[in-house]
Computed example of a mutant assay.
Amino acid sequence: MSTDYQQAREALGVRLRELRLSAPGGRLTGAQLADQQGWHKSKVSRLENGRTTPTPDDLRAWADATGQPEAYDELLARLRGFESHIRSWRRQLSSGHRPVQDTHLTAHSDASLFRGWETSMVFGILQTADYARHIFTRYAELQRTPRDTEDAVRSRLQRQAALWDPTKKFHLLLWEPALHTLVCPPAVLAAQLDRLAGTIGLDTVELGIIPLSASMKIPPSTAFWVYDDRQVIVESWHAELWIDDQASVDTYLRTWQTLRESAVYGSDAQAVIARARRAVQPRA
């Protein structure tokens, strides 16, 4: 399912292509434009196909390089129009959870460094199939949306292949209450905690846990993801907020760094997980 955000980014890409092909000095090839700006050869294609969000500097360079500097204001206005975009759950989930998971799968494929903060449940990228199944079922009930639980679980597990991709890094922060939240049967939570403990030591994952006893500089508020220091995804009860403007992204990066100061890692994180595991009722 294509989102409004992605449609707007693709529309901007179409406009960029039009400017390149209508340059007053003669149409530029993508390779010529990339060479002229000192960009990687794939950048022009990614921008024109809506796979990468341009920065204001990218747009200025594009307008100048195509001999149409007057187009910059228009391009910037288009960019500002979708830098912060609310994607309502009602619209996104109209066909079930699978399309949303596929959208995130695409976003993951385009990024290499991920910073995450979660307060109430285990990160999707680290969930077991059973745990994810209960999460999707509960949210489908809440949002009154179609149930495509098994398809959604398969898409979520497909995303987890990135954990074994050496080109990707996941720096994750989890608040201790997420280890105790019984959004599933105790046996499922116990297995999930075992899986979580097993991710500590993966060379692609840095998992920090903030214990309830930790001193914190700021309150542990809304969960969020930061992709490649350029995009933030925040979830609320009614919508997802996708944020691209750099000032806001920087705010979330500072928030993440501040939270990180309260986290424990390695054997200390294992101890927090083990404590939660002991608190789970024995399996039936």
Rank of each mutant, 00 (worst) to 15 (best):
S95C: 04
R98W: 02
E118K: 11
W117T: 04
T119R: 14
A77F: 06
P56Y: 01
G67M: 09
F82E: 01
H108I: 13
P54G: 12
E74Y: 10
L59F: 02
R60E: 06
T66E: 08
D64V: 15
L47F: 09
S84Q: 13
L93Y: 00
L75D: 11
A111K: 01
R80M: 04
W89I: 00
D64Y: 14
F123W: 14
E70M: 03
S94L: 00
L47P: 01
Q68M: 15
L75E: 14
N49R: 14
D58T: 08
R115I: 04
T103D: 15
S84A: 08
A63C: 08
S88L: 03
F82C: 01
H104Q: 08
R90N: 02
L59A: 03
A107K: 13
R91C: 01
R115N: 09
Q92T: 02
H108L: 12
A77E: 15
V122K: 13
R87Q: 14
R51S: 04
D110C: 03
T53R: 10
G67N: 11
F123V: 09
T119N: 10
L79K: 05
I125K: 13
F123S: 15
G124N: 05
S112L: 05
R46F: 06
S88D: 01
V122E: 05
R87A: 09
S112F: 09
V100W: 02
S112H: 11
T66G: 12
D110I: 01
R115G: 08
R115Y: 09
G96F: 01
R80S: 05
S88H: 02
S112Q: 09
G124W: 10
M121H: 12
L76G: 02
S95E: 07
T52P: 03
S120A: 15
A63L: 06
H97Q: 07
A65T: 08
A107T: 07
T66P: 09
S84D: 10
L76R: 13
T103G: 14
L47H: 06
L59Y: 06
R115Q: 10
R91S: 06
A107V: 03
H85T: 04
G81I: 00
L59I: 05
R98F: 00
A77K: 15
E118W: 14
T103R: 14
L105T: 08
L47E: 05
M121A: 05
I125C: 07
N49I: 00
H104F: 15
